[in-house]
Simulated assay, not measured.
Amino acid sequence: MKAYYENIEFWHLITLPIYFVLVYLILTTFAKRILISDNKYINLHFLGLLLFYLAIGLVDYKIKLIPYFPDTNLFTRILETGVTPHNQSIGVKIGYKFLAIPIYLISLKSIFNYFLFNILFFQLGLIFLAGAFNRTYGIQDVWVQRFYLILAALAPSIVVYSFTPLRESYFVLALGLFFYGMTGKYKLNYFLILGVILAGILRIQLLLYFFIIVGFQYLVQLKLSRKMVIGLILVLFPLFFVALNYLSTSILNIPISPESLSLFRNVQRMNYFESGVTYPEVDWRTWLDLILDFPGLFFQFLLAPFPVIIFIPFWTKLAYFADGLYLLFLLFICLTFIKNIKKYSLWLIYIGVYVGMSAFFEFHLLGAVRHRLPATLLILSIAAQALAYYLPKYKWIFRY
């Protein structure tokens, strides 16, 4: 039996319906305020989603359905004891401890109730991301957000990590808050600030990503010609690089240079080498070395666990394999929409920047699947737009 199921009490199951109703009311309330008006569907969608997830959780309690990840024991002990080992990152010692432990106490130390909060944070993050996409492109078609919510509900990573005491649900919430805040009417708002704070205490690397995205957003809002944009980039790039290097050095203690990035990857690779799923060693002495390796790293991160520069018997890793197949499905939908995809170039930049940044730092093939989740959620938006555009004749399936 999994460690977090060992202390299950009968009264945990008795309180489950109360928390179920609470989570349902919170989700539908936020969805109706953030998303395009579609109240009847929203009510049915989140009721069906919670029942679906509840069934998965109860089955997993009796039959091992959700994988048991290596970090699970650590996070389970932190929840149950409130003690964080000193050798953990700031994201664990501060972010997880001061977010997850209070939630666990509010859950009455019931792992089932805690998982309902996990689901809540995942779905709130998705609602905010859908709202941000609607704002960015003036989406008025409810089918776009319906397809988005459906695709997200079926995403293997979201299902799996909803039932583990890891940090992914908090990451998704931070991502959703940031994007929703960034696309708001006012430059500085509560959503943006809260998203940045959550990212800062959970995974500091996200702050670098947010910094770049805000820069792109302001550049786009200037509404300059293409020549002006290219000229501005050429002029500002040195200043931008100095600022980014300062942040990377201050926050991650990693200067942005071929040698430092190479050293970081190779040291981490040695620590996890026995797992058998680390990336190959790199030897970056010049920027040209890094540029030549970048395409392989980019697509290996994006398509993990499938082979690009490294091969493992990926079909034996069922959860990772399912997530990879699902991403290929989403990418296929997006490719069918390629003639119309230019309109969503800004969103594609957001995806590309995240994958590109992560690819430089990633050294573990299965870790790539886990860390790719934010990019997957951004891809979902374009896939949902494609489905709403191409499949109107199937909409009758969803009528009620």
Rank of each mutant, 00 (worst) to 15 (best):
F75C: 09
F75V: 09
F75K: 12
F75N: 12
T76W: 08
R77E: 15
R77H: 13
I78L: 12
I78F: 06
I78C: 14
I78W: 07
L79K: 11
L79Y: 03
L79S: 13
L79N: 10
E80P: 07
E80T: 11
E80D: 02
E80A: 06
T81C: 10
T81G: 05
V83N: 14
V83D: 11
T84W: 08
T84I: 14
T84C: 12
P85D: 11
P85Y: 04
P85E: 04
H86A: 15
H86S: 14
H86N: 13
N87R: 05
Q88T: 12
Q88D: 02
Q88W: 05
Q88C: 12
S89L: 08
S89H: 03
I90N: 05
I90C: 03
I90R: 08
I90T: 12
G91I: 07
G91A: 09
V92E: 08
V92A: 11
K93P: 02
K93R: 15
K93W: 00
I94Y: 05
I94W: 06
I94P: 06
I94N: 00
G95P: 04
G95R: 05
Y96M: 08
Y96V: 05
Y96I: 01
Y96L: 05
F98T: 02
F98S: 03
A100M: 12
I101S: 08
I101E: 14
I101P: 05
P102M: 12
I103N: 06
Y104H: 09
L105P: 02
L105T: 13
L105F: 11
L105Y: 15
I106S: 11
I106V: 15
I106K: 10
I106E: 12
S107V: 11
S107A: 15
S107I: 11
L108H: 15
K109R: 15
K109I: 13
S110Y: 14
S110C: 11
S110T: 11
S110I: 07
I111S: 04
I111W: 02
I111C: 01
F112S: 10
F112G: 03
F112D: 07
F112P: 11
F112R: 00
F112W: 14
F112L: 15
F112N: 07
N113C: 13
N113I: 13
Y114C: 04
F115A: 00
F115W: 06
L116D: 09
L116Y: 15
L116E: 01
F117E: 04
N118I: 03
N118L: 00
N118C: 11
I119V: 15
I119C: 03
I119P: 01
L120M: 05
F121Y: 09
F121Q: 08
F121D: 04
F121R: 06
F121C: 04
F122E: 03
F122H: 14
F122M: 04
Q123V: 02
L124K: 00
L124I: 01
L124H: 03
L124M: 10
G125I: 06
L126N: 10
L126H: 01
L126T: 05
I127P: 02
I127F: 04
F128E: 03
F128Q: 05
L129M: 10
L129R: 06
A130D: 01
